[in-house]
Design a protein around this nucleic acid. Structure first.
Lengths: 335, 335
DNA sequence: TTGTATGCGTTATCAG
DNA sequence: CTGATAACGCATACAA
């Protein structure tokens, strides 16, 4: 058993409260130097570390954040496609470390509705949900009465979102500035909130540039790869010259399919992604992509949670700005 | 404030103990059905959820694992190169979820010696260290008297390691079976334990196949990329025909450099990695690589920690077997 | 400055 | 089968 404050007090021959006072207060509190020294030395000798559980119970402060993540993230095979969540977790962990907050990743089966029990078993006093959970789940979270904010494409009462529309628009603007006109959007289906927003941004930007197209014509869902292949096989004058992919991982697919079709990236076709995750610099050519600012989002998320935890009811947070990082997968449109 | 067991007891007009007894025991415990019903209904009505903190304090059971990770993992730019740790964290999180254990990622500055304070004051009752920490750090951890095991290339009293030597040997065996003879090892310098083990496996396997080479000749550290470029520029008869990279991320570098040198992978040169992380299926061609079985390692790690926590002193765990996954970055040696 | 008493929400050990 | 009482380790009044 670890040493308790009582052991320390006994060893220093003072009362528990005295020991507690000295051990818990800042070093420049007023106290008899000799008493302080005795206590500190005893604590040192006994290897005393305060019991955070007891502190939490007594003070009512937990200061730990539960982070809900898809269960499959921990799966070797399936986890591959869920790199995004690992990066989210890392970003949240980093932000929490900067604030001396604890985090607790909680892996849950996405298909299952969370119950209050799932929460109460955890030692957290606020929550981050990173994926689109069911309304029932959110109801349970509300009922649990824990501050809870959705990260990215999660739905819910409070959310922190990137400017997906703006990011998509910036991508299209850039492509248009390079002379591209036949631009496709390669997307995930069915999509999350972020997915829809990027799609809207794409369509709006195309419209703005007078490149109006029907969504059906310009948006290829990832379950229709054959259609993408077919488009890539069209003669140069009809073939798309650029593809804006929903996410980096999808951009990789696009590059693969383009390569298989005998097209060179970026000479024959430009590809642009979204996220700027680890993959973005691993592909060849390196990926031009919209930065999904996970770090900034994590910071905003924790700030929002802190406010909620203090009992404030902050307004809907502003969108986190996205920026375009230009690398090597984009080039001027072929003549 | 959430409802406590006392509120439930009062509402059901029984004593706290009775309520606790009914609420905490399995449903088929013997108790008067009507009392049970009263209590359960009251609990339901009040939205009672037991306080996990109080449970922990009272029972003395924490069942939470601290996972030490490099601080930079949460950094957008630097985090890119630390994908490995994100995958480790995900694997540990998955394994913990299967066992109903809580985990707490703790991001620490690698260069700093850890103190008892970093243990988040007893929020956890066992530890995983995922990177090579300093001896002083391990001493502090020992002093904290918490079961602690190193994951992968971490050093320490207890560790769970993959069969790095065997994996490296399997890679070389496979290359040799494809007719390769001039094989390089592209490695990280200075290296971790895993690094050294893979290097040893490489050298031993080369020896075994009668391809004895000096380490200086056959091992290129990643801070000497120019040397790798030079080798790739040699005439076909002297040029290496295969490279075994220390890790997938390094295999990507090798492929890039090979590509820049005008070599085709795998026709002109075969590349083989280590880890089988998410990147392995994102590269083009897809990477042949040794599987670093993070999931299995995480399981072993938690088992070992559980044993230590029970007070057992288990023998050094066996190496976790590695396997080779053959994809598209390897081919028979050019004639 | 230091000691005493009480409470946090639960479990566990006893009596009744 | 139920109820009272004492821990668990600490914080927070309050009193000395």
């Amino acid at each position: 058993m670890a040493a308790t404050i009582r052991d320390v007090a006994k060893a220093a021959s003072v009362s528990k409260s005295t020991a507690a006072y000295i051990l818990s207060s800042s070093p420049n509190f007023q106290t008899l130097p000799e008493t302080r020294k005795k206590v500190l030395e005893a604590a040192q000798a006994l290897g005393y570390r305060r019991n955070a559980i007891a502190v939490a119970l007594s003070s009512g402060q937990i200061n730990a954040i539960g982070v809900f993540l898809p269960l499959q993230m921990g799966d070797h095979e399936k986890g591959r496609s869920l790199l995004y969540f690992k990066e989210v977790l890392a970003a949240v962990a980093g932000a929490a470390a900067r604030r001396n907050l604890r985090i607790m990743p909680i892996l849950v089966d996405q298909s299952r509705t969370l119950t209050g029990q799932d929460l109460s078993d955890q030692w957290v006093d606020r929550l981050i949900v990173t994926f689109p959970a069911s309304p029932e789940t959110f109801a349970a979270l509300e009922a649990a009465n824990l501050p809870c904010v959705g990260f990215g494409s999660a739905s819910g009462r409070h959310t922190v979102e990137a400017d997906n529309r703006g990011g998509a628009a910036a991508a299209i603007d850039y492509l248009v500035s390079l002379g591209h006109q036949r631009i496709l959007h390669y997307s995930h289906d069915p999509g999350s909130t972020a997915n829809h927003q990027r799609r809207e941004g794409f369509l709006a930007a195309m419209d703005r540039h007078g490149l109006t197209v029907s969504a059906k014509q310009a948006i290829i869902p990832d379950n229709r790869r054959d259609e993408l292949r077919r488009r890539f096989g069209l003669p140069p004058g009809e073939r798309p010259t650029a593809v804006f992919a929903y996410a980096d991982a999808y951009a990789v697919q696009v590059m693969d399919i383009a390569h298989d079709a005998g097209l060179r990236v970026p000479q024959d076709i430009s590809v642009i992604g979204f996220d700027d995750g680890a993959v973005a610099v691993l592909t060849r050519p390196k990926l031009t992509t919209v930065v999904n600012p996970l770090e900034t989002m994590a910071d905003a998320c924790l700030d929002l949670l802190a406010a909620l935890h203090r009992g404030e009811e902050p307004p809907a947070g502003p969108l986190i700005p996205t920026t375009l990082t230009i690398r090597d997968s984009t080039a001027p449109a072929p003549p």
